[in-house]
Design a protein around this nucleic acid. Structure first.
Lengths: 140, 140
DNA sequence: CTTGTTGCAAAAAATTTGCAACGCG
DNA sequence: CGCGTTGCAAATTTTTTGCAACAAG
């Protein structure tokens, strides 16, 4: 379903700021901070204000079209993806990757069974060192 | 090892702000936001400034004595605990609990094996509904 | 046309910093 | 006593909000 349809379905309008923010997010293959999004949006249309970027991100998140992550210092945004997500964050270079793992579903089952808790979304964040980076010389 | 020793070992001093912040964190059985910590610290000693609270949190985090979580809107702090941690966050009442799960270690092994990535800390955040809260009437 | 949205500028909220005074070791 | 730390106030940084003008449907 298209962005426009999703919006219209809920009586929201497809405006230029919304289209551009969505394009920027869709075209990026990595997480972007609000500042980066605002910058790129502004590059594409200097007339679009930062506050519209924030308002759009909030709206798209509400519609489950984008997802906010707080993996690092600043929070970042990306198009929403399947429920179980593993984020691999390199402590050295900061790169963030996704990783599929069937085990997450096992985890969900275990929690549902043992924790008196009904899981909906599971987020896994793994800090570590990626292949490109040297192993930490002084492991803490 | 005591706080004082850990500090002294690295040529830091045990000061009143540091002691009180540490006490507040140690005595709490839940995550606290910086504002909550500052408030409680101030209650115990009105002379301690907010900026000292922030500086202390940064130092204690550096020493791996406390840990910052960004599970919800605002980031929260808690004494550092074992590596693999599962946080259960209730979408309804906001309560945060810890949960042990051996599966996390399986996950670590799988990532190490398949992802070209050396995991150090693994954080699992599970959103959902806790036993005390009604199931969401309109599941999204 | 009607009403949701925007741009702008100002406000809020959250955190950081410079610096002289202070106090731990 | 010396140097790491603090309190304070001001500066940053990040996000939010009120409101008149604007534009999507």
């Amino acid at each position: 379903m298209e962005l426009e349809d999703i919006l219209r379905e809920r009586d929201f309008r497809l405006t230029r700021p919304r289209r551009v923010v969505w394009e920027v997010l869709s075209e990026s293959e990595r997480h972007l901070s609000a500042a980066e999004i605002a910058e790129e949006v502004h590059r594409r249309d200097p007339g679009i204000n930062v506050s519209s970027v924030y308002r759009t991100l909030a709206l798209l998140a509400e519609l489950d079209l984008v997802r906010e992550s707080r993996l690092t210092e600043t929070s970042t945004w990306e198009p929403a993806h399947a429920d179980a997500v593993i984020h691999l964050v390199c402590e050295n270079c900061g790169a963030t990757r996704h990783h599929d793992a069937a085990l997450v579903e096992d985890l969900r089952a275990e929690i549902a069974r043992t924790a008196d808790f009904a899981p909906s979304v599971i987020d896994v964040r793994v800090s570590g060192t990626c292949a490109k980076c040297p192993a930490p010389s002084t492991p803490r």
